[in-house]
Design a protein around this nucleic acid. Structure first.
Lengths: 106, 106
DNA sequence: ATTAAATGAAACCATTCGGTATCACATGGA
DNA sequence: TCCATGTGATACCGAATGGTTTCATTTAAT
């Protein structure tokens, strides 16, 4: 258990962590830079980053004495794909997309 | 805080609750019927259903002495849509979907 | 009217969670 | 070398979480 998808969903369950992902969508950031956007301590932010990393939603690259955090699109995709199970329940959106594409094809 | 989206993400963070949603995707179920699929007590399952309801991921209809639980596609979509923020990061999937549909069309 | 069935609800418990404070370690620059 | 900067890591705390047990309430059926 505690498979990758579960760790991903767990990581997304906290609003701070979701906001961090949105920050990282704009640019890669060090821990300190991420922490500037919140009122909590750097240690708390680091914990959030660790959980995001466990869920494979971000990647970390050590550069000298800093650590650059960046989005991991593949991990995000793995969670996102879970919703595909329910495609039948929001046909309206899929159909809208489909007719858009069909228009392109013709 | 504790907005609708947060309650949705919170509801999805537990694997039991995600499995319940998949069961309800096939058919509406009473609490007892949902509980048959798990080893935990009915009381525990009922708690999970309450959290799913708070996140607006399911709807509940009282029928006599039973309660029929059904999927709430709108609430599910509200969580799903959060991922739209990251569209730029998985263009490959959109393209894969597009070619799948194009194959259907031809 | 009784009784069984389906659910509601509360008390309780161990664990996890989100946060803090604190200290140690590593690295770059004067 | 010395020191400031950026990070790692641990102990600790209150609150939330996921589960149980137990009992009350409502409804269907005999």
């Amino acid at each position: 258990m505690t498979d990758a998808q579960q760790l991903g969903f767990r990581a997304l369950s906290d609003p701070t962590r979701r906001r961090i992902l949105q920050l990282l969508a704009r640019e890669d950031l060090t821990i300190a830079e991420v922490a500037e956007n919140f009122q909590m301590t750097r240690a708390a932010v680091k914990k959030h980053l660790a959980i995001l990393n466990e869920g494979h939603l971000i990647k970390v690259e050590t550069v000298g004495r800093t650590r650059r955090n960046s989005l991991d699109p593949d991990g995000l995709r793995r969670v996102y794909d879970w919703f595909g199970f329910f495609d039948q329940f929001w046909d309206d959106r899929l159909n809208a997309l489909k007719s858009e594409i069909e228009k392109d094809v013709q």
